[in-house]
Amino acid sequence: MNLTVNGKPSTVDGAESLNVTELLSALKVAQAEYVTVELNGEVLEREAFDATTVKDGDAVEFLY
């Protein structure tokens, strides 16, 4: 899956889609429990991480 992460191209191997929690784990995001996630310009509530799917071509920003 090809994404733009914090403005840079990134690839997650072996996945066509992941939820936000899985993406944080796959990318080994440090202190993931404290990060705010913006997906395609929309800031996500932490409670929505498990239910929100990240797909090929999406833009993700991790805000600390």
Rank of each mutant, 00 (worst) to 15 (best):
R46Q: 06
D56P: 07
V29G: 04
V37N: 01
D58T: 03
E45W: 08
T4C: 14
A32L: 11
T4L: 12
E42K: 14
A26D: 01
N2M: 12
V43L: 12
A15V: 14
S10H: 15
L24R: 00
L18C: 10
K55G: 06
E47T: 12
Q31C: 15
P9M: 09
A15T: 10
R46N: 06
M1K: 03
G14V: 09
F62L: 12
G14P: 05
V60S: 03
Q31F: 15
L24V: 04
T36V: 12
V20K: 00
S17F: 12
A26V: 13
F62A: 02
N6Y: 02
T4Q: 06
P9L: 11
R46I: 05
N40Y: 02
V37Q: 00
E22L: 08
V37R: 00
E33L: 10
T52N: 03
N19R: 06
E33H: 10
G57Q: 04
T52R: 07
E61L: 12
E61T: 14
N40F: 02
K55T: 08
E61S: 12
A59V: 15
T53E: 10
K8W: 10
K28D: 07
V35W: 07
E33T: 08
G41K: 04
E33M: 11
V5K: 01
G7R: 05
E33A: 12
G41A: 03
V5I: 13
A30W: 14
L39K: 02
A51Q: 12
G57P: 01
V12E: 01
N40R: 02
G14D: 06
V37H: 01
M1V: 07
A59P: 02
T36W: 10
A32F: 10
L18W: 07
K8E: 09
E47H: 12
T36F: 09
D58G: 01
D50T: 09
S17C: 11
E33I: 08
M1Q: 02
N2A: 10
L39E: 01
A32R: 10
V54M: 04
V35I: 10
L27R: 00
Q31D: 13
E61G: 07
E16F: 14
L24M: 09
V54R: 01
L3V: 08
S10P: 01
R46E: 04
A30C: 15
R46F: 07
A51L: 13
L23D: 00
E61I: 14
N40K: 01
V12Y: 08
E16A: 13
T52L: 05
